[in-house]
Amino acid sequence: MSTSKNRSPRSRWRTLAWLVPAALVAVVAVVLLARWLRDLPAVSAFVADYPGTAPRPADAPEGIPAWLAWQHFFNAFFLVLLVRTGMLIRAGGRQQGHWQRRNTGPLRTKGKPAKISLNLWLHLAVDVLWVLTGISYVVMLLATGQWVRIVPTTWEVFPHAASALLQYASFDWPSSDGWSSYNALQQLAYFVTVFVAAPLSIITGLRMSPAWPKGAGGINRVVPIGVARALHFPVMLYFVAFVVVHVTLVLTTGARENLNHMFAASDDGGWLGVVLFAVSVALMVAAWVLAKPVFTGPVAALTGKVAR
């Protein structure tokens, strides 16, 4: 039985040759269906009653603070590295280096410090930074009241989200002001990403890591290793899909304004956000390229023993 690892490049190109047209046909079909639905009187009235943005609390903060813009960059930067290292780990193959802890600690196998690949070391190291960033992000959300941006406060968020989804699918974007608040579909997507997907990724990743306690029978039954392995990769695919859709909508629904909000924490209509976005993309591309044992080995050597 053949697998994706031993398929020839020609076979992969043949698969891509029919997948791309099929995807385009599916997109066109969805757009036509959405436009047809919006012409129906009942659906048109529904969209008019629920334009896409749910009511928000009267005391909700206005604007995007600078800390939120910085958090956005660091979360995205670490997520890119996590995806990159996760792909390297999943690809397997011959390891170009290993890392071993110098002193005692949780990374031990049969009383000896565990030896892990440099790809796994980088994945775990970046994961720690991503988790710390996420914790500070949630704390700041709660402390400043910005949590209302991504946490629904009314059940009306669901019909508004359905309306926004239909408007996006029909390529007739819902009107929204990202500086003040997100539309209902964005709010639900961010809520799921921050409070469901991220914790699930952390828990399943920790369950598979060498740092997980080996003798914790009770907690092991709560989070079985088989479940962790089955969920961790699909959660990563969710993050990839979220980023692709998120970036696409940011660039197609008013790129300069959106990027100025997200990266410059400003609503002045300037170009600083675009410049900062370009710099952040360059840094992410550089991190993607440099996430190799030949570059990460010297850094890993600062925290343990590295063997080629």
Rank of each mutant, 00 (worst) to 15 (best):
G97F: 01
Y137E: 05
A169R: 11
T154P: 01
Q186V: 04
V192R: 01
I135D: 00
V192P: 00
V148M: 07
V222M: 15
G217T: 13
P113F: 04
A228F: 06
Y190R: 04
N183M: 11
W121F: 14
L132D: 00
W212G: 01
H160V: 05
V138G: 00
L132N: 02
H123Q: 09
V196P: 03
A184Y: 07
V194M: 13
R102N: 11
L122P: 00
A162N: 00
Q146S: 13
E156N: 05
A216D: 15
V157Y: 01
S170M: 03
Y168G: 05
A162P: 00
A114C: 05
W147L: 10
H232M: 07
H160C: 08
L166N: 02
L166H: 01
M87W: 14
H232Q: 04
Q187H: 04
A216Y: 09
G215R: 12
W179N: 06
G86R: 06
N119V: 03
G215L: 08
Y168W: 15
W147I: 14
V131E: 03
D172E: 14
P213H: 03
A230I: 08
L107T: 10
T133F: 02
G111V: 14
R207M: 09
S136Y: 14
N119Q: 09
A197M: 15
G134N: 05
L185Y: 06
G86H: 03
D177G: 10
I89L: 14
T204D: 09
W121R: 02
L132W: 04
V223P: 06
G134K: 01
R94T: 14
H232G: 06
P199V: 11
K112R: 15
V138H: 01
M140P: 00
A125N: 01
Q96W: 03
V148P: 00
Q167K: 13
F195C: 09
T144V: 12
W173N: 07
P159Y: 10
D172Y: 02
M208S: 03
R102H: 12
A211V: 08
P224H: 08
V128R: 11
L141Q: 12
Y182V: 11
T109M: 06
T204I: 05
P199H: 12
H160G: 05
M140W: 11
Y168T: 04
S201W: 08
D177N: 15
G93L: 10
I89F: 04
R108W: 03
L165Q: 13
A169C: 10
G86A: 09
V192L: 13
F158Y: 12
R229P: 00
N119T: 03
V138L: 14
L185F: 14
G134W: 09
L165D: 09
T133E: 12
I150D: 03
V148W: 08
G86C: 07
L165V: 15
A164F: 09
D127N: 13
T154R: 01
K115H: 02
G215H: 13
G111H: 05
H123W: 07
G178K: 12
S136W: 14
L129M: 13
G97Y: 05
D172A: 14
